[in-house]
Amino acid sequence: MKKSGNTIILTGGGSGIGREMARQWHDWGNTVIIAGRTMESLRETAEGRENIHCLELDVGDPASIAQFVKAVMADFPAANVLVNNAGIMIYEDVTGARDLTDAENTVTINLLGPIRVIDALVDHLAAQKDAAIVNVTSGLAFVPMPKAATYCATKAALHSYTLSLRARLEGKIEVIEVAPPGVQTELTPGQSEREEYMPLDAFITETMAQFEAAETPEEVLTQQVRFLRDAEAEGRFDEAFAMLKSR
């Protein structure tokens, strides 16, 4: 993925990782369209940056996706990069029968959302020069944390989907996966204060440096996430899973 001169669509741009990635890409000389459900948060991301543009989008709603894509095509026909970053993480008790609303919403937003947005844009992107799709998954795609069972399952599924996309879109659209470790954001309540999580600024620095390389890696990983990403290959899966079971 080239460093500058892109027109980037980024979902979940109102806070955390999405906010800081959007700002960095803007400052490198890209036009960035950030999307989310809360316009106030999006405007905070865009403040002082004239080439960050805000559009409302609920990735859990197919009608909202259709309306969003129509608006993007009308106002930003040069869009050549899609970053699927929007997601939710909810802790859940799977030990008994329960209301499955949270689980169903997690699947809809974290998995069906990116699939639907990609589907709506893939033909357009394939016709653009220097096209790319960036899917944000998680270290928990590789070793799950049981108290967030559905979240981890959706990220594992998105990792798998990304592999298939890369194979099928080879030569047409570059497909990149960003798999963060636990990062100090408000993805879950109090997460931004947890000392064992990676500071957001450190994550952004290490992650975005890889987008500056002559060739962006297929998997953009920090050193901190490799404990999970490489656990199975290095014979440490049981150790890593035991650690996450205790959280």
Rank of each mutant, 00 (worst) to 15 (best):
R37Q: 07
R37C: 06
T38H: 13
M39H: 10
T45Y: 01
T45K: 00
G48C: 06
R49Q: 09
E50W: 04
I52H: 04
H53W: 07
H53C: 04
L55P: 03
E56S: 13
L57D: 05
L57G: 04
D58P: 07
D58T: 08
V59S: 06
V59Y: 00
V59G: 02
D61A: 08
P62R: 07
A63L: 13
S64H: 03
S64M: 02
I65T: 02
I65N: 00
A66M: 04
A66Q: 10
V69N: 01
V69I: 01
K70Y: 06
K70A: 13
A71V: 04
V72G: 04
V72R: 03
M73I: 09
A74C: 05
F76S: 07
F76I: 08
P77T: 00
P77Y: 01
A78D: 15
A78H: 12
A78I: 01
N80R: 12
L82W: 05
L82C: 08
V83G: 00
N84H: 09
N84L: 08
N84R: 08
N85L: 01
N85M: 00
N85T: 00
A86Y: 05
A86K: 04
G87E: 01
G87D: 05
I88D: 06
M89W: 08
M89K: 09
I90V: 14
Y91R: 15
Y91E: 15
E92K: 15
E92N: 14
D93R: 14
V94G: 09
V94D: 09
T95Y: 05
T95V: 04
T95K: 12
G96R: 15
R98C: 11
D99Q: 06
L100W: 14
L100G: 08
T101M: 08
T101P: 04
D102Y: 15
A103S: 15
A103L: 13
E104S: 12
T106F: 09
T106V: 08
T106Q: 11
V107G: 10
V107S: 10
V107T: 09
V107P: 10
I109Q: 07
N110D: 04
N110R: 03
G113K: 01
G113V: 01
G113F: 03
G113P: 00
I115D: 04
I115S: 06
R116Y: 07
D119L: 10
A120S: 12
L121N: 02
L121C: 06
V122M: 12
D123T: 10
H124L: 06
H124W: 12
L125H: 04
A126N: 14
A126T: 13
A126C: 14
A126F: 14
A126Y: 10
A127Y: 02
Q128E: 07
